[in-house]
Amino acid sequence: MSPPGGPVAAEAGGLASPDPVRAQERLGLQIARLTVRREQTIELCRRVHGRFGIELPQQPRRVSAGALAAAGVAPGAWLLSAAGAVSEFMPALHAATTGCATVVDLSDAYAIVRLWGSRVRESLAKLLPLDLHERCFAVGHLAQTVAAHMSVTVWRLEDTPQGLPVFETWVGLSYAASWHQALRASAAEFGLLFEPAAEA
C-alpha cells in the first residue's frame, strides 16, 4: 500500500512527449513550523543561525543550508525542513529555540511535489494565479495561494544542471490525491512523468 502522499512508483501521463514536465514526490522530510514569541525575533534568528547556520528569511523566501531549509511563510513564522541526514533535528530545534519560539512538528502534514522541465511554468500557470516568470519569481521566492480550491505553498529551487526551472509545491496531506490529479491535468498537454518518490 502506498503512503498517503500518492504514487511512489514512476508514472507517466498525458501526452507522450520527449520533454515532459517531470514531477517527484518528496517523502520523509522532518518539518517544523517555527513561530516566534513576542519580541523575540532577533534572539530567535541569532540562535537558529548559531545552531543550524541558517538565516531565517524575513520575507516570503526560502533559503537552505546543507540539508536544512527555512521558508518564511508569515511574519514571524517559518517552515523548517530537514532531510533525514540531519539527525535529532526536532529535539535540537526545540532546545535551540526554547523561550523564544514555538516549535510544532508538522513532518506528516504535507504532500510535497517537486516539478521541473521546460514547460513547467506553462503547466503551473493553469493552477497557480502567480507570475512565475524568471524576472518575477526568482530562485528562493515563495508564495502561498489557492489553486483548484486548495491552499498551496510554492517556491522556486535552484535550476537543474541543464538550466531547467524547478518548483516545489506543498499542500496539506489530505489534499494529496486531488493535488496530484490537478497537476496531472495541468501538465497533460505537455506530458507528465512522475518519477519515483525521493526519500529524504
Binding site: 500500500m1 502506498s2 498517503p4 506528516d108 483548484a148 480550491h149 486548495m150 496539506g172 496531506l173 489530505s174 489534499y175 494529496a176 490525491a177 486531488s178 493535488w179 490529479q181 490537478a182 491535468a185
Partner: peptide
C-alpha cells in the same frame, strides 16, 4: 474550466483512506 464532475472541488482523504477502502 476543470471544476466539474469529480473535479468540482478537491476531495480530502484521511491518512487511513486506503485502509478503509481495502
Amino acid at each position: 474550466g476543470r471544476a466539474r464532475g469529480t473535479e468540482f472541488r478537491p476531495c480530502r482523504h484521511t491518512p487511513s483512506h486506503q485502509w478503509a477502502e481495502a
